[in-house]
């Protein structure tokens, strides 16, 4: 479904992403972990068209590196941001409407039907009922994250990329979010890439796990095997002590 070939991105001297290649199967949940500054967010920015580097990126066999963010959204790739920045002058529903209106608009090829029929269904699926009319600026972080996620889902994506969806949440909220993501994958058949620091969450929900370090793929494979790899342990623990 998604394929990266020798993707590299330099910021000046720094190789934030270095010769990264991997391929994603439809329906997969793919985790990305690594120390801060490893290049995880940069990978998302490259795939979603916010940054352009070298190498090739394919979605459904079509080359997408070089496209603009909105064009990539129209192909069916949605994303969230590490720090949620919703439309603060709007209500929850108005945020979602933007995704609904513009995510599908101009999409080439046959329009993909979403698993939900109207926004009300989507809202209750993510658990925002009763907060539709709230100005987003008055929401707490968890609900902001849900609003941002639901807006991304409103674009009717087939692949969604989540940048630290659980970050900053309480244990209970993180648990709820994780369940929601699993339902997105199982019930709605969405392919997911998730950047996460919480290893237990990754091993529980991912089919495969990529460990990034200094922009390079340190390990990629079955999550439990990967997290028990001494090289990975050293990489992740080493940072905690740094």
């Amino acid at each position: 479904m998604l394929r990266l070939e020798h993707v590299t991105k330099h910021f000046g001297e720094l190789a934030a992403v270095n010769d990264l290649s991997f391929e994603l199967e439809e329906g997969e949940v793919f985790g990305i972990a690594g120390p801060n500054g490893a290049g995880k967010t940069t990978v998302f920015n490259l795939i979603s068209g916010f940054l352009h580097g070298s190498g090739r990126i394919y979605f459904d066999g079509r080359r997408i590196d070089g496209l603009q963010p909105h064009q990539i959204t129209h192909l069916g790739v949605a994303r969230t941001f590490q720090i949620p920045q919703p439309f603060n002058s709007m209500t929850v529903v108005q945020n979602l409407r933007i995704g609904e209106y513009y995510g599908v608009a101009g999409r080439s090829g046959p329009k993909k039907d979403a698993p939900w029929n109207d926004l009300a269904e989507l809202i209750s699926f993510v658990g925002l009922e009763g907060k539709e009319a709230r100005p987003v600026s008055t929401l707490k972080l968890y609900d902001k994250k849900l609003t941002v996620l639901a807006s991304a889902l409103a674009t009717k994506p087939r692949l969604i990329m989540l940048d630290e969806a659980l970050g900053g949440l309480s244990a209970v909220e993180a648990e709820q979010s994780l369940e929601l993501l699993q339902r997105l994958n199982r019930e709605w058949g969405l392919t997911i890439i998730m950047i996460e620091h919480l290893m237990s969450a990754l091993t529980r929900s991912c089919d495969r796990l990529l460990i990034l370090n200094n922009g390079e793929a340190l390990r990629i494979g079955e999550p439990r095997t990967v997290v028990e790899d001494p090289v990975v342990i050293e990489c992740l623990v080493g940072v905690k002590h740094a």
Partner: peptide, 8 residues
Amino acid sequence: SFAQSLGI
């Protein structure tokens, strides 16, 4: 960025 990511 959020707006662009939603297809605008």
